[in-house]
């Protein structure tokens, strides 16, 4: 096997893992800091993608459309938290059911508003040459974006007062309130943040994954499994799970078929959950 082919496969697999991680971080934040599984996460990603698409179609430069998408999804996320999620804390199955309902509603809303197909915005046509092969630059750039996102969330959660409050609230909720933290406000902010990260993912992935109403479904299952495999040390756990599962699946897909790649993803997930029912990070002594 040629070295340049191997390098190409590895690089593009790393990009796939990063794309999975970008799509997952928001879900991981909401699950890790609120104990809520947001099954509408994929739809927030979709809303972010459509917001960026609509903005660029209206003449806004693509880079500027990304913060707009974040702002829109954060606002909708805060509204959903106050109106629905805040009534269901500590009832994990009820929140899953409620967010699933929200996801269906948002999906239908998108079908009614945008139709089932919509134009992509096209990937910047720059590629890098590796031996006989050439790789598009934009997906490679996603490795950097994933690292920046991880760094941002890590710093926010470890260095800011809000981050300390959010971690205290999920670790010992009763004591968090007893020392003066109003968990309801912290939760609204955390949920909005998770939705904003989903919106960011939808917007930043738009050149690779075109906006369609059903795009959320494609991401949410794998993102959900990644978070569950990660366990309580959410951020580090999710990064490792995304690289292992997403990267592994992509390598497998390159050598065999994309079905084999998916099979790899789900079989390894099942094996990991069998060996580590509480997630791979259950015994780690780390903050995030």
């Amino acid at each position: 096997m040629e070295a340049d082919f191997l390098a190409t496969v590895l690089l593009s697999s790393l990009s796939s893992a990063s794309i999975l991680l970008i799509a997952t971080i928001g879900l991981a934040v909401v699950f890790g800091l609120m104990g809520v599984i947001n099954l509408a996460h994929g739809e927030f990603l979709m809303i972010g993608a459509y917001t960026a698409l609509t903005a660029t179609q209206a003449g806004v430069p693509y880079l500027l459309s990304i913060p707009i998408a974040v702002a829109v999804t954060m606002a909708i996320g805060a509204l959903v938290e106050v109106l629905i999620i805040s009534r269901l804390y500590g009832r994990i199955f009820d929140t899953m059911l409620a967010t699933w309902g929200i996801s269906i509603a948002f999906y239908q809303l998108a079908v009614l508003t945008f139709g089932t197909v919509s134009p992509g915005i096209g990937m910047p046509q720059i590629s890098v040459q590796i031996g006989d092969y050439s790789l598009a630059l934009y997906p490679l750039l996603m490795n950097v974006v994933a690292l920046l996102m991880l760094g941002f969330v890590y710093l926010l959660m470890t260095r800011s007062v809000y981050g300390m409050k959010a971690r205290a609230s999920i670790q010992v909720p009763e004591m968090a309130r007893a020392i003066g933290i109003s968990s309801s406000r912290v939760n609204t902010l955390t949920f909005a943040l998770g939705c904003g990260l989903a919106g960011f993912a939808g917007a930043v992935l738009l050149p690779i994954v075109p906006a369609t109403p059903s795009m959320g479904f494609a991401f949410v299952i794998k993102a959900f499994l990644t978070v569950v495999v990660a366990g309580p040390v959410t951020l580090t756990g999710s990064a490792l799970a995304a690289i292992g599962l997403g990267g592994g699946a992509s390598v497998t897909a390159s050598f065999l078929t994309s079905v084999a790649g998916d099979a790899f993803f789900f079989i390894v997930t099942a094996l990991l959950l069998w060996r580590f029912p509480l997630g791979i990070s259950a015994r780690w002594r780390r903050k995030l």
Binding site: M164, Q171, I179, G180, P232
Partner: peptide, 23 residues
């Protein structure tokens, strides 16, 4: 509280700092 209930995955400094900040 009985049983302390410190925040286990936060540092000693953070346990103190978050209580001050929250009030």
């Amino acid at each position: 509280p009985q049983g302390r209930f410190v925040f286990p995955r936060m540092t000693v400094a953070e346990n103190i700092a978050v209580a001050a900040a929250a009030t």
